[in-house]
């Protein structure tokens, strides 16, 4: 049987795929919102002078970075309920996984950005009488934040693509929606192509938004 490409299949799948996109975006944004909170906290703990706090943050970062996302989400959704006797809804499990996972990488981004600021900045700030906290708040952080934008953008894109792994727990995001359409019409080529284009459109939009943020907010010229 010769393969005949049918563009109308692509058009027809768009409305249903849009519901998947919606969920993909929600999971990514909510997940990354908490991921940033986890990451900023863990990143700053890794810079703290307290050894215990440093070790704690380090253990979190290492255990997440050293295990696959797929295993993390299955552990959270299928594994944990066995132990605690309570199942969390798949969407929540997905968001929590993305948050915990991105948090570990964001922790390293935050730590790296803060450490990349010349120690002379902290010294100059302290020398005019600012407390350590004020020096961080007014001098180090604003500069570090600017340096975090490109790697955070990168993480944004990675996390967005990672949400497709949530198919294993049946969250109806973009990839899952594609699978469902194919199970009815068997047009794998057209549907996966459409799904791929949609992911690409999303990631390119993120890149664009981030370069605008860099330019308008942080005055970075390209």
């Amino acid at each position: 049987m010769a393969f005949d490409f049918d563009a109308s299949v692509m058009w027809d799948s768009v409305p249903i795929l849009m519901t998947g996109i919606r969920l993909t975006i929600i999971i990514t944004i909510v997940g990354l919102f908490f991921g940033f909170i986890f990451g900023a906290t863990a990143g700053l703990l890794k810079l703290s002078r307290n050894v215990l706090l440093r070790k704690l943050a380090g253990a979190y970062v290492e255990s997440i970075r050293g295990t696959p996302l797929m295993v993390q989400v299955m552990f959270l959704y299928f594994g944990l309920p066995m132990a605690v006797g309570m199942r969390i809804p798949p969407l929540t499990a997905g968001i929590v996984t993305i948050a915990l996972n991105s948090g570990a990488y964001i922790a390293e981004i935050v730590r790296g950005a803060v450490q990349s600021i010349n120690p002379g900045q902290m010294e100059a700030a302290r020398s005019i009488g600012l407390t350590r906290f004020q020096a961080m708040r007014y001098v180090v952080w604003p500069q570090a934040l600017k340096r975090m934008i490109p790697p955070l953008g990168n993480q944004f894109i990675i996390s967005l693509k990672d949400t497709s792994l949530l198919v294993v727990i049946g969250v109806g995001e973009l990839t899952r929606t594609g699978q469902e359409i194919i199970s009815v019409n068997f047009r794998a080529f057209e549907v996966w192509l459409t799904v791929a284009i949609m992911y690409l459109a999303l990631t390119m939009t993120i890149s664009k938004i981030l370069s605008i943020v860099e330019e308008k907010v942080f005055h970075v010229k390209r």
Binding site: N118, A124, I128, G129, Q143, K146
Partner: peptide, 30 residues
């Protein structure tokens, strides 16, 4: 630290602040 001002070889100005903001940060916050 405010009794003794320090001037560094590498200046260490705050690059994200204007000249005036560099100068007024101490008076404002300290």
């Amino acid at each position: 630290r405010t009794e003794a001002g320090m001037v560094f070889q590498q200046f260490n100005l705050f690059p994200h602040m204007t000249t005036l903001q560099n100068v007024t940060l101490g008076p404002l916050k300290v």
